[in-house]
Nucleic acid binder design. Structure first.
Lengths: 218, 218
DNA sequence: AGCGAAATTATACGATCATATAACAAGGTC
DNA sequence: GACCTTGTTATATGATCGTATAATTTCGCT
């Protein structure tokens, strides 16, 4: 008997400041991507994950792509800030700071499959979203500059020469991203501490003057 | 006047051997991913790209995910085979073979944004597709083994020691993938020949004994 | 030549998608 | 305590999605 003709009452809710709501939606987006990859990106799924209705996404972000890009910003900036905080917290020597950067990169907080899964999906999205691409360029530049400073200080302190610090930073960051990727796709391939050791060995190669050899075009 | 009541005739077609058709569909899939990333993956879009109807995908692959995984296999195996072919074609010295591997990796054929775009999208898909993940594990192992052999031969020939060749291969491959990724996301960051130089410098670090330092757990 | 297997097209169906619009309610402000 | 801004829900719309099913054509085989 469907005769109980009571209209279900409109759901109650509490207002939230736009910035807070935006962040909640971004975090729900990250969880959705974590669970189902790029297939988890849809207004309905994200709204359900955040416990709100879809219209709220339109209201705060317009189109869904803007929310995804914002979620990328949140994650990306959080990552760089956290790694830099760990670096700043280390003793003020070039060696200790670089070591802190490496250790943070392979610590449980970041070298975590659930985190890296999201990261890898974003990489695939950046290529087709100008909005996300510009964020990535900015963040990438931030990472490079940080690494470059660490390397310059180390070289000055220990008295060795780096032929091109920008390129060296690109290589270091590439090694880091590549290890993140490889471990994320294949966690049994190596252990986090082995990944950190591989980064240290790259630095050791730098110490021993490897960067002065085999320059492009030589 | 819509009175011309002629039913439009059923479209003509030619039969194609299942293996050939499967490959055509896989190549159409790669083109769709190239154009629109993971958003380009749909039975309708891929079928249109291949010039056939959607039903053909169901007929040959069952579900769409199987086609995508097969497309990944096609691309992945093709890549490894092509790089290995370039390596085999080099003079039979460890130095020349490793150099050929590096040069192939940064040659216009592979170090190409249109190719790498697809590669990066696949990375994001692997994480949520057991079928693709098992393909990736097999292919990754193939890459590692190839690199490991190159490094072992080089070390034996030049008389230096690599502490752990498996880990060294992992690092080399990670550097390569990381440089592919960085350049794909940010092509203005460095030139292909600079990427190749960074790989050579990593090898130079290996020559100078960097891998014996800073072992994990020491 | 024509029979039959199967490759291919054509169509249908229900689910889910993004997004727009209107109705509503929460909470600060006066 | 009433008002007004706006955050939020509710609903509608048309497009696209994956996949199943039936009708049809192609082509090897005898």
């Amino acid at each position: 008997m469907p005769s109980t003709n009571q209209k279900k009452p409109r759901a109650h809710f509490r207002r939230v400041a736009p910035d807070d709501r935006a962040r909640q939606l971004a975090e729900a987006t990250l969880r959705c991507i974590q669970k189902k990859g790029s297939a988890g990106i849809s207004a309905r799924q994200i709204a359900a994950e955040a416990g709100v209705t879809q219209g709220l996404i339109t209201h705060h972000f317009g189109e869904i792509g803007e929310l995804v890009a914002y979620a990328f910003d949140v994650m990306s900036e959080g990552l760089l800030e956290a790694i830099m905080a760990a670096t700043e917290a280390a003793p003020n020597t070039p060696q200790a700071r670089l070591e802190a950067y490496i250790q943070a990169s392979f610590s449980q907080s970041f070298f975590d499959q659930e985190v890296l899964r999201v990261w890898v999906v974003f990489w695939g999205l950046i290529l087709h979203s100008p909005r996300m691409s510009s964020s990535q360029k900015r963040e990438y530049s931030g990472f490079l500059t940080s690494i470059e400073r660490l390397l310059i200080d180390l070289a000055a302190n220990e008295g060795f020469v780096i032929a091109d610090t920008r390129l060296a930073a690109i290589a270091f960051n590439a090694l880091l991203d590549g290890l993140w990727l490889a471990w994320c796709l294949n966690p049994e391939a190596f252990r986090p501490e082995e990944g950190a050791a591989l980064c240290r060995q790259w630095v050791e190669g730098l110490r021993r003057g490897a960067s002065a050899q085999h320059q492009a075009g030589s």
